[in-house]
């Protein structure tokens, strides 16, 4: 990339023959990379079309029953459906919003406004970056250790009360585990949003005698709100789609007897399942009962609608505010 290289390239391109050759090669190169993009998009299209096609037999005839039904042992069953999974996924989203959101925003504000450029902040940021890269299944182990097993740390700090509080293998445990998993995402996106607040606004507030917390509350949070919200929505969508940590925390794949209403909080400390878990279960059941492949596809459509809705809201929100602020 030195000037010398550029020089040779230009000189080589200077003869008529060479120019023609570069043209062909250039066109070929462009076609090649364009095809990479097209293949990626095509895969996405095939995935969506194939899944919807598979799901059609369920969704076209009994969509409402499917949303309200429960886990069944046979695919041809009027009461087959994903309500129990919706229940789990819904409450997982709620717990993520209730815990990861405030903690993540607080952490981001601390790192950007209270401890900016300090060594401690640099250390915490390093930890957060590395947490973001930890495989989700390892978070499952953490959830298993913290919320399910009655563990002890260093032989004397008992964590049994945590397992007692969550009820062990429960939606509560799953939600908290996934909140921990998405916390780095919330922090990193919130940090970016906080960093984007113009320094003029901060100085203006300080110059008028605002304290740090007043400045944060009146300037930073309103300005950074869209960015923070975008990050939180993305985090929720990630949490709702995760399955591996739930398996470790003990989501179950059969034998759920209850089918509570979404807002019925009485089932939070009991055995649970979630949409992604139902999908895994039904895919594995298809050998015994091929109809479950279609049921799984239908469950995927439900999951995708939820996840993509959250994702698209987040992306649109971000784009809109980016444009507005030039």
């Amino acid at each position: 990339m030195t000037l010398a290289t550029i020089g040779t390239v230009a000189r080589r391109g200077a003869t008529g023959f060479e120019r023609k050759r570069t043209d062909v090669a250039g066109g070929l190169f462009k076609a090649l990379i364009l095809s990479a993009l097209v293949v990626s998009l095509l895969v996405l299209a095939v995935l969506l079309i194939d899944t919807v096609a598979d799901a059609w037999s369920q969704l076209s005839t009994r969509a409402w029953d499917f949303l309200n039904g429960s886990l069944r042992s046979r695919s041809i069953d009027d009461k087959l459906g994903v309500k129990q999974g919706l229940y789990g996924s819904f409450w997982i989203g709620v717990f993520v919003a209730l815990t990861a959101f405030p903690i993540g925003v607080g952490a981001a504000i601390y790192l950007e406004e209270y401890a900016a450029k300090s060594r401690l902040a640099a250390l915490i940021e390093l930890v957060i970056r590395n947490l973001a890269g930890v495989p989700s299944v390892v978070y499952g182990l953490l959830g298993l250790f913290l919320f399910v097993e009655r563990s002890t740390v260093f032989g004397f700090v008992g964590l049994g009360w945590l397992a007692d509080a969550t009820g062990g293998r429960s939606v509560l445990s799953a939600g908290l585990t996934l909140a921990v998993l998405v916390l780095p995402i919330v922090i990193i996106t919130a940090q970016e949003a906080v960093r984007s607040v113009p320094s003029g606004l901060k100085e203006g507030a300080y110059g008028l005698g605002a304290t740090k917390s007043e400045m944060v509350w009146t300037q930073i949070l309103p300005y950074a709100a869209p960015g923070i919200l975008t990050g939180t929505l993305l985090a929720m969508s990630r949490a709702i789609g995760e399955a591996a940590p739930l398996i470790l925390v003990g989501a179950i794949t059969g034998g759920l007897t209850r089918n509570p209403e979404l807002w019925d909080a009485s089932g939070l400390r009991e055995k649970f399942t979630a949409l992604p878990i139902i999908i895994v279960e039904w895919v594995s059941e298809r050998g015994r009962d091929p109809g479950f492949a279609e049921a799984a596809a239908a469950a995927i459509v439900v999951l995708l609608v939820l996840v993509l809705l959250l994702n698209m809201t987040a992306i649109l929100l971000r784009n809109r505010f980016e444009r507005k602020r030039g």
Binding site: L201, G207, L208, G209, T211
Partner: peptide, 19 residues
């Protein structure tokens, strides 16, 4: 410092009204 800034007003180089 907060108390000080409440008694001593400041106007900045670039107009910075709050949105």
């Amino acid at each position: 410092a907060v108390e000080v800034r409440r008694r001593i007003g400041m106007v900045f180089q670039k107009p910075n009204p709050f949105p």
